[in-house]
Design a protein around this nucleic acid. Sequence first.
DNA 1: AAACATTATCGTAATATTGCAATATTAAAA
DNA 2: TTTTAATATTGCAATATTACGATAATGTTT
Lengths: 110, 110
Amino acid sequence: MGITKSASFSNEQNETALLFKALGHPARIAIIEYLLQAKSCICGDIVDQLPLAQATISQHLKELKNAGIIKGSIEGNSICYCLDLTTFDKLSELITDITDQIRTTNSTCC
Amino acid sequence: MGITKSASFSNEQNETALLFKALGHPARIAIIEYLLQAKSCICGDIVDQLPLAQATISQHLKELKNAGIIKGSIEGNSICYCLDLTTFDKLSELITDITDQIRTTNSTCC
DNA sequence: AAACATTATCGTAATATTGCAATATTAAAA
DNA sequence: TTTTAATATTGCAATATTACGATAATGTTT
């Protein structure tokens, strides 16, 4: 059907999935890499860097923002988008928990 | 269009995105959580646990396998699916690199 | 205020994803 | 070898995502 049965899963499972989903597009990875490396964080600079139309990038930024991966603040005429460390720390913890669990159990029995 | 312009991005960006994308569905998160906690790792057990049809779960397992998140081995009549530690370690490193970079630069200037 | 610059939203077309019933495949068991 | 059990694949319908041109909204500058 194309519709995810979100109601069948826990809030936490759904939220985790949404976070990963937001990271699951090369353009959004490219945006993150740009923000990591850039001195400024003006939206227009991102549009200049990526091979996509302005409208498309605006949508990707919206998705990253909804997922809590970036935050934006008005900077005069334009908007400054930056990474949200809190979310990445949460993500880091999540992955570390998993690798720890894998190591302490026999989750890799195959 | 619905078509991702993969050709416009680097291989690494595309691969990273594919990995996250595979994690971006609650059913697949639920499968991972089950495998973390389960003693055995038989496919049929996963089907029993999740509120989805067998065909649907088979598809999700295929996606996880394609992304290198799980690996399967034949166990008599059935198939044993397990987490692939290597991939999670890679993922862990990826996230840690990002948080390190955020901390050492001013990527969160907003 | 008018013109301009920047970003967001809308509308739409194309493709992708999700989910499941039905069926196929594979291997064990009888 | 027939039957049974377990998993994969196919075909399809419904919804979601991606992308972009056009346009709206917002704030700046003149």
